[in-house]
Amino acid sequence: MRYTRPIALMCSLVLSASVFSAEPVKTLPGDITLNQAQQVVRAALRHAETIKVPMNIAVVDAGGNLKAFARMDDAYLGSIDIAERKARTARYFNMSTRALGNAAQPGQSLYGIEATNNGLAIFAGGELLIDRKGVIVGSVGVSGGTVDEDESVAKAGARALSGSTR
């Protein structure tokens, strides 16, 4: 009877070791790759350069974790956090930050939601990243210009991933 625990412990350790020695998963299904995230950033940067507005561009993965980021020369320092929050907000609620912002106005069903999740950004500039199969793989957030400029740059980045021309 006194040997039961050590044997059980040894079996547990052997099983645990086999789990940890397994080949790690490179990318989860439905998650953005680094290459895709960088593609989104490059497309967004090109659009920001075209409209001549220095921007901060953040891409988060399917879990809302920062995957890629770029800060253009002369982009506002305060916009770094805003770009990341826009990206996370879009992913957390699976909608653009413009759509969430509309639902969060006084008298609307989500009024006050921006105070949750350690602060959300509920104005335009956060867009979902949807791959060619129609799967949400992350999101992009942009900040540094007007709300409409931010949104146009975020949409340019999102189009690069989806292959859409709209």
Rank of each mutant, 00 (worst) to 15 (best):
A37V: 10
G125S: 08
E114I: 00
S12M: 15
R88C: 01
L45H: 04
L45R: 09
P29N: 07
Y92V: 08
R71F: 08
T146I: 11
V19T: 12
I57L: 12
F123V: 02
I51C: 05
L128F: 02
I136C: 08
A87S: 01
G107K: 10
N56S: 09
V53L: 03
P106I: 03
T97S: 05
I51K: 04
I122A: 06
R42N: 15
R166I: 13
V53Y: 02
Y111W: 13
L34R: 13
A124V: 10
D73K: 13
Y111F: 15
S16N: 05
V60N: 04
A115R: 09
P54Y: 02
I82L: 01
D131Y: 11
A154F: 04
A156N: 09
L28G: 06
T27Q: 08
A99G: 03
A75G: 09
S12K: 08
M10T: 15
L110M: 14
A90M: 03
R166T: 14
I82F: 02
E127Q: 13
G63R: 11
A8C: 01
G157F: 04
A158Q: 14
E127V: 07
R132V: 14
R42Y: 10
L161F: 12
A104S: 15
Y3D: 15
L100F: 00
K86D: 06
T89E: 00
P54T: 06
T116P: 02
S143Q: 08
T27V: 13
F20E: 04
G119W: 04
Y3E: 14
P54M: 04
N102D: 15
L66N: 05
G163P: 09
K52I: 06
F20A: 07
A75H: 07
M10P: 02
P106R: 04
T116W: 03
K52T: 13
A68W: 08
L161R: 12
N65D: 13
P106Y: 01
V135G: 01
S164W: 09
G78T: 11
A75Q: 07
L13R: 02
A62G: 15
R71V: 06
K155N: 12
G125Q: 02
T4H: 09
A87H: 00
Y3A: 12
A44W: 07
E149L: 05
A37N: 05
A58H: 05
G145T: 13
T146K: 12
V14E: 05
K86C: 06
Y76F: 12
A99K: 09
F69N: 07
Q38S: 10
P24K: 00
